[in-house]
């Protein structure tokens, strides 16, 4: 039997105390939840902005100009988003390592009772979304992967870019991954931030479901409309 370890000893400095919070399992989860709130808010805003495409070329262009009216602000938002993505991944990598080490010998047989498809596939939907984000930035922000890119003509770039069937299918697959990731992630962040909720019927579960449907259906409407020729 190991000796009983002493209870938490008082930390000496504030940075040390902060690193102890961040280093703990719950602190790492807090990082995932807070960056999750930022990224969820971003996808909601991004989705709402995308719907401008249904108002035509000029509405889309003026929306693009609006986003760029203050370069410093644009870059501040971009930096916050980049930092959120990086922190979300770094915290996950640390938690993932701990979780793997916590059960070195696997069960021969496993029966799942409450875990669902979304919760069990977070480790796949996350990296898939990262791949998608890299492609998506190169496709519609920088134009690197876009064969027919016109600077500051988002309507043209979107319609010509998503008219290519494999590209549109890839976008829709990414939205399916986003749906799974958001549905479990949004519910989970309530739990991690400390709002006591049950997994089945609860405000957090309902909120996660509605939030996911709104974001993902809103996003998917654009490639679907282009594929069906509703938006030309």
């Amino acid at each position: 039997m190991n000796a009983v370890a002493p209870a938490a000893t008082p930390a000496r400095s504030a940075p040390n105390r902060l690193s102890r919070l961040i280093g703990s399992t719950i602190g790492l989860k807090l990082v995932m939840a807070v960056t999750g709130v930022i990224l969820s808010g971003f996808v909601l805003g991004h989705m709402a902005g995308n719907l401008k495409i249904f108002e035509g070329t000029e509405a889309m262009a003026s929306y693009a100009r609006l986003l760029r009216f203050e370069p410093a602000l644009l870059w501040l938002v971009r930096l916050v988003l980049l930092a959120s993505v990086v922190l979300h991944i770094v915290a996950w990598l640390q938690l993932f390592k701990r979780n793997q080490e916590a059960r070195p010998k696997a069960y021969r047989q496993t029966t799942r009772k409450e875990a669902d498809y979304a919760s069990l596939t977070m480790r796949f939907s996350g990296p898939f979304l990262l791949l998608f984000i890299i492609y998506h930035l190169g496709h519609l922000t920088t134009g690197t992967f876009h064969p027919n890119f016109k600077e500051l003509d988002p309507y043209h770039n979107l319609v010509t870019g998503l008219r290519v069937l494999p590209v549109a299918v890839f976008y829709l697959l990414a939205m399916a991954a986003l749906a799974l990731h958001l549905w479990h992630g949004v519910w989970s962040l309530f739990q991690t931030l400390g709002a006591a909720q049950s997994k089945q019927a609860s405000f957090a579960r309902g909120f996660a479901t509605i939030f996911t449907l709104v974001v993902v259906l809103g996003f998917a409407a654009v490639p679907l409309s282009i594929m069906l020729g509703i938006v030309k």
């Binding site: 370890a5 989860k29 701990r98 979780n99 080490e101 916590a102 919760s119 739990q191």
Partner: peptide, 16 residues
């Protein structure tokens, strides 16, 4: 802190 030190994993909200 003790829980982390003992080598348990973290919660990913499966509900198992």
């Amino acid at each position: 802190e003790r829980m982390d030190g003992e080598g348990f994993g973290g919660c990913t909200n499966h509900g198992e």
